[in-house]
C-alpha cells in the first residue's frame, strides 16, 4: 500500500535491529515443504523438524518475474523462506504456491481491444480479456506503462490491473487502436 499522507512517517526505530537479532538467512527451496492443512491454510515445514502454521507466498517482482523469486512470509510479515525458482520445489509444494500466487495477483490479460476513446485526458477502454469482457477508464499517461516495446501494463482509475503481453500479436484492429491511442 502506498504511504497514506498523514499516517505516521517512516521512523527510525533503531531498537528493532538490536544486536541480539543477527540477520537470519531465510530457508531455501530444498529445505522446505509447503502444503495445505487444513484446506485453506498454507503450512510450511522445514526438514520435517520445524513447522510454520500459516505462511503467505508473495512474489518479489510480480511484473518482471512473475514465475520466480517467491518469498514466504509468516503472520508477522517476516520472511521465512525464499524460493529463487519454483522448479526447485517438490511437485506438491510448487502446485500449492502457484495456486496461491494465482489468487493473490490478478492482472487480466487483454486479448482484444474493442474500442479506445480518448476524451478530455481520460481514456475509455472496452476490451476482451482472458477473464471476460471489461470496460475501464484510465487517467493520465502515468497509468499506461510500456514495460517493453510491445508489452503494455495498464492500471485503471480504481486500481484494476491489465496487461497486453505483446500488442503486435493482437488482431489488426486492436493493434491500430493501441498505436493511435497509447
Amino acid at each position: 500500500m502506498p504511504d497514506e499522507p498523514g499516517v505516521d512517517a517512516p521512523d527510525t526505530f533503531e531498537f528493532e535491529t538490536g544486536i541480539e537479532n543477527a540477520p537470519v538467512e531465510p530457508y531455501q527451496a530444498h529445505e522446505i515443504r509447503v502444503f495445505r492443512a487444513p484446506k485453506n491454510t498454507v503450512r510450511m515445514t522445514v526438514r520435517h523438524e520445524r513447522s510454520y502454521i500459516r505462511v503467505r507466498p508473495v512474489n518479489a517482482s510480480p511484473m518482471a518475474h512473475s514465475d520466480r523469486y517467491v518469498s514466504l512470509l509468516d503472520i508477522k510479515n517476516e520472511e521465512v523462506a525464499f524460493i529463487k525458482d519454483l522448479n526447485d520445489l517438490d511437485e506438491g509444494s510448487r502446485q500449492v504456491i502457484e495456486e496461491e500466487l494465482a489468487h493473490r495477483y490478478l492482472r487480466a490479460t487483454i486479448e482484444r481491444v474493442n474500442s479506445i476513446q480518448m476524451e478530455y485526458g481520460v481514456t475509455y477502454w472496452d476490451v476482451m480479456t482472458d477473464r471476460g469482457k471489461r470496460e475501464f477508464v484510465i487517467r493520465g499517461h502515468e497509468n499506461t506503462h510500456w514495460a517493453s516495446d510491445a508489452r503494455l501494463l495498464l492500471t485503471d482509475v480504481d486500481g484494476n490491473r491489465f496487461e497486453v503481453v505483446d500488442y503486435t500479436r493482437l488482431d489488426p484492429h486492436s493493434i491500430q487502436l493501441i498505436e493511435t491511442n497509447v
Binding site: 484446506k39 485453506n40 510480480p62 493473490r104 492482472r107 484494476n160
Partner: peptide, 15 residues
C-alpha cells in the same frame, strides 16, 4: 490482494 480483494469468514481456525 493485488488487483482484487475478498471477504473471508473465519470458521474454526480457517479462513
Amino acid at each position: 490482494l493485488v488487483g482484487s480483494g475478498r471477504i473471508n469468514v473465519v470458521i474454526g481456525n480457517e479462513d
